[in-house]
Simulated scan of single mutants.
Amino acid sequence: MSGPLNTLTWVLICMVVVVSLIVVVALWLALFGPRSWRRKLGGEKMVLIAGFAFPAVVLTALLVYGLATTRQLSEAPRPGEMRIRVTGEMWWWRVAYLDDQGREMLQDANEVHIPVGRPVVFELDSSDVIHSFWVPRLGGKMDMIPGRRNILRLQADEAGAFGGQCAEYCGGPHALMGLVVVAHEPAEFEAWRARVAQPAAPTALPAGVAVFDRSGCGACHTIRGATFNGTAGPDLTHVGSRRTLGAGILPNNQGTMAGWISNTQSIKPGNRMPAYPVLTGQELRDVSAYLESLK
């Protein structure tokens, strides 16, 4: 769905078809054509033209065109462009929406929201090892290298949810490091952005807040509007509105939330969130109901 990548793909496909037809025609003439043509095809001049000059010209032209086209996807952000910083972590995605000066406006995790029909600049970082950001249906794949920020432009041409994946082996539960890119119509996107920019609404579930607090969850997680401001793990301000849990591996509902908190290591072995088997069934219901309400 990324315009430049689609164009480049079709140019390459067309060139493959044209070259293949030329080769097939030349082969047919060499085997079954008139003797005069066979002599021409086997001559020194034709070998130089068809065997050296033609491939050199075609491949050079494709290389120059390909580099010029893909260069647009990795240029530095321009004024007015929408910017999203995605940071690969073991084994989840930290997502930050930026203003024109690169300042963070709000943070999310494992889910990226973009408007339809508008190029979006993804600033790709890694906080630990090499990861790779890949959303196949949007045509984009770029490595995330510690200490280096890579730029990738993507555009969704229709609304929908597009699955992504870390495409560079990063140890442990690498295969379970997924994400979702959700493309909205422009008006719907602005409504979503206005909603998630707000802090969490006051809750009517104090029992869940109490479990979250005494279990130490706020040491790793932020909930804007509450007293929890940890930064080691995902921001949970609007976790109840996300489509998945565990970086794309579970549907998001109260039951899966309770199971994730109770024994995250059995669901995604090696991830950095500890299991909480000490919580009672009632405590799990309370805290998962609280988190599920954060929309």
Rank of each mutant, 00 (worst) to 15 (best):
R285E: 15
P77I: 12
L179Y: 03
N263L: 07
K40A: 12
Q198P: 04
S20L: 13
I223R: 09
G88S: 11
E190H: 09
N150T: 13
N252H: 03
T264F: 11
G43C: 03
P79N: 00
A56R: 05
T9N: 13
S2C: 03
S266P: 04
A258K: 05
P4M: 07
G172I: 00
Q101G: 10
F54C: 11
D157K: 12
H113W: 10
L291K: 01
F189Q: 11
E44S: 13
I22V: 13
M1H: 08
R224A: 11
K141D: 10
P186C: 14
G164D: 07
V239W: 02
V181H: 06
H238M: 03
L152P: 08
G240F: 09
D99Y: 08
R272G: 11
R242N: 05
A26H: 11
P173H: 04
G171M: 06
F212M: 01
R71N: 12
L124H: 04
Y169A: 08
V19C: 11
F228I: 00
S288D: 12
S126L: 07
F52K: 09
G117A: 01
W28H: 14
A258Y: 09
E44W: 13
A187P: 06
L279W: 05
L8P: 03
A96P: 05
E75L: 13
T244C: 01
E283H: 06
V47T: 11
M1V: 05
Q72L: 14
L124G: 01
A207W: 04
A289W: 08
I13L: 14
N253D: 14
S288H: 08
L138N: 02
Q282T: 15
E188G: 11
P206A: 08
A207C: 07
